[in-house]
Nucleic acid binder design. Structure first.
Ligand SMILES: [Mn+2]
Ligand SMILES: [Mn+2]
Ligand SMILES: [Mn+2]
Ligand SMILES: [Mn+2]
Lengths: 244, 244
DNA sequence: TTGAAATATTAGCCATGACTAAATATCGCT
DNA sequence: AGCGATATTTAGTCATGGCTAATATTTCAA
């Protein structure tokens, strides 16, 4: 918000706008590109970003050109060939991811949110908390390394533990593994998983996989009766390297 | 954010905009009008609102017309004669004030923010927390009635304790009173007051007032050496009805 | 009572970040 | 290699909420 009252500025300000650049929208683009480009890093297409953010591809192209035109550029954009984050863009994306995961952990641990409600709230707040707030909740939580869904929280310098996450759907029958993380954006799914006792750290054994992308039959922890998980559920669960 | 993928809607949506009405800006106008109109309720002028929000009067007029045109109207606007909040506008304003003061209390009590830093953070977050978040921090804090500066927190139904706040500057020499609240928007001032030991609940005695709006000499609590407060400082402190 | 000063509104502009429709580039396949 | 399908970009529009400059209204003092 501008200060029309101050008369003599050193240089005439470049006219503050109602919705400053480098805002919520920009954050969400950078985060989307970060999440979609995976590891090792891949170019991300306009269409993918559009689908991820539920907006049109035209809007995405428009924004990508702005992001590429910033100084410093936030993305490297090749017309018709997608984008990659620049150094600066990646730094900002990781900052927002850190906010998101710290907020989720905070909501769950301190404010007793159920784990299926933390994502939605964090998705909004991640853009608006200060560095002070970030620092304080991190301290309060004892500088946690993982959020309630098992996702690693980037450190202050943006570093993440080198992980080799594998989808549960890629296990072979008979193999065991520990749940590393679960997808955090579908509350209904999270409630279902909680009801099954599936959460990060729990040991799973794939007893059988029905043909044609059918259900996965898993034994959970040391329980006796197995559970059945759909293919999309098995895709939403990552596990650590299978043991034995 | 729109969903361009859903094809057949019941009625064609009125085209979702990037910055939905009923947002941060609207909240801040309603809050400003609420704060400025005082008790008993007064009409508030465009210029006052402009100064309070550090924007131009033209922008204010523009927004007031929009607010008056909403259904239901959020303000009663008489061209050239200022505005008052409508029922709906007052409800929303109190909702935001409740957010603000709960957040301040939360930051101070749970996250150990110093009292001069809570206002700025609350000013942003008040617009973005959910009802769930509000409810959780209120519960965590034991449903507090006052924020760290002594301001009353509106109840869920919007009610506020009937208070008769009086500026310290209106005390007569010799009178004693208890500090009720201190203005919360100037961090430097708050640090100064804290250093003097002036905070809500502390007893003050006005020993002398220098002429021509000069300094106020007060004894703080049961301390022996008096402090000197400028007129603007004495305006920023409210006290409860003088005793004796 | 009247005219200048102070206040307030109008008119026209801009940036952000959506949208749709039209144009164009790339890709997959014969 | 070339055609058509798919992906992507361009062009033009809109709402929100700022701004400045010009105009209109109200107020106040002579
Ligand atoms: Mn977000
Ligand atoms: Mn998560
Ligand atoms: Mn605010
Ligand atoms: Mn306060």
């Amino acid at each position: 918000m501008a200060k029309p009252l101050s008369k003599a500025h050193r240089t005439d300000q470049p006219k503050e706008s109602a919705h400053p650049p480098g805002s919520e929208a920009v954050d969400d683009y950078l985060k989307a590109i970060f999440q979609l480009s995976g590891r090792p890093e891949r170019q991300v297409s306009s269409t993918e970003i559009a689908a991820h953010l539920s907006i049109t591809a035209a809007s995405v192209t428009n924004m990508l050109q702005k992001l590429a035109g910033q100084n410093p550029p936030l993305v490297a954009y090749e017309k018709h060939h997608g984008v990659k984050l620049s150094k600066a863009g990646k730094k900002r994306a990781l900052e927002i991811v850190r906010h998101h995961r710290l907020i989720e952990t905070f909501l769950h641990e301190i404010l007793d949110y159920p784990w299926d409600e933390v994502h939605q709230e964090a998705e909004r707040l991640e853009h608006f908390i200060s560095e002070r707030f970030e620092e304080r909740i991190a301290a309060k939580l004892g500088h946690p390394e993982f959020d309630p869904h098992g996702h690693a929280i980037p450190a202050l310098d943006g570093s993440l533990p080198a992980q080799e996450p594998q989808a549960l759907s890629q296990l072979r029958p008979g193999q065991s593994a520990k749940v590393s993380s679960v997808s955090d954006n579908d509350p209904e799914m999270l409630r279902y998983l909680a009801a099954q006792g599936i959460r990060p750290g729990v040991k799973l054994t794939l007893s059988e996989q029905l043909p044609f992308q059918g259900a996965y039959q898993v034994r959970i922890g040391s329980s006796t009766k197995p559970a059945l998980l759909s293919h999309s559920l098995a895709e939403a669960i990552t596990v650590s390297k299978p043991q034995q």
